[in-house]
Amino acid sequence: MARKHSKHLLPGFGLTMGVSLFYITLLILLPIAAMLLKVAGMGLPEFWRIISSRRAIAAYQITFSSAFYATLINGTVGLLLAWVLTRYRFPGRRVLDALVDLPFALPTAVAGLVLVTLFAETGWYGQLLEPNGLKVNYTQLGIVLAMAFTSIPFVVRSVQPVLEEVDQSLESAAETLGANRWQVFTRIVWPTIMPAFIGGCVLSFARSLGEFGAVVFIAGNIPGVTEIVSLLIYIRLDEYNYEAAAALAFVLLLVAFLTLIATNALSAWQTRYVERSA
C-alpha cells in the first residue's frame, strides 16, 4: 500500500484529501462564491449606494461602537476571571471555571430571552435599575450587554492557559528585590499575557460584531438607534431586497476575513513572542 504514495509514510492521503476537498468546496466555498457572484453582478455604483446609505452607516456605527464597549467590558472581566481562576484556590473554583463557558453553551436566543426578561421594567434587575434612570431594554446599553454576555469566555480562555504557564519564580524574585504587587504585574505578568489578551479581545470583538440572536431580543430594533448590521440584513431579506442584503452581508464577510487574518497574524506573533522571551 505504500507503493502508491511513496512520498507519504502513512496511508489515507487520497481518501482524506478527497473528503475534505469535496466537503469544503460544496459546503463552504460554493455558497460563499454564490453570494460573491451576486455582489459582483450588481455593479459598483449600486453596491456603493447600498453600503453607504444613511441607515447602513448608522447601523455600522451602532454595531461597531457596541462591539467596542462590549470588548472593553470583556477585557476587564475576562482578565479578572482568568487571574482569579489560575492564581487562587477557593471553594467553588471548579464550578466557576465550568460556568465561564455558559455563554458559549447557551443558545443565543435563550440568552436574549433571559436578558430582556431580567432588564424589563418589572424584571429582577430592571426594577432596581429603571427607577435610577438606567434603561437597558431597547437601548444601546442593551446591545452592549447582550454582546458582552455572549462573548465572555473568549478573553478568559485565551489568557488562562498563558497565566498557568507563567514562571511564578520570576514574580517571587521580583518581590524579593523589592518590587510591589503592581510593579510585578505590569513588568512581569502583563508582558507575558499581553499577546493572548489582545488575541482574546479580537475574537470577542469579532463575535460581538456578528452577534444576532441575543441582540434582536433586547435591542428593540429601532432603525438608526438600535439597529445592528445583522438585523438590517435580515430586514432587507424580509422585504425581498436581496441585492441590499447581499451587499451588506459582503461588508460583514469582509470584516470576518480581516479578523481571521488578524487572529492568524496575532497567533504567529504570540508564538514568536513566547519563543523570544523563553
Binding site: 455558497p31 444576532f212 440584513i233 442584503a245 464577510l253
Partner: peptide, 14 residues
C-alpha cells in the same frame, strides 16, 4: 468567524 446571518444569506444565494 462570520456572522450567523451572513451564513444564512450565503446559502440563500446558492
Amino acid at each position: 468567524s462570520m456572522s450567523p446571518i451572513v451564513a444564512g444569506v450565503v446559502y440563500l444565494f446558492l
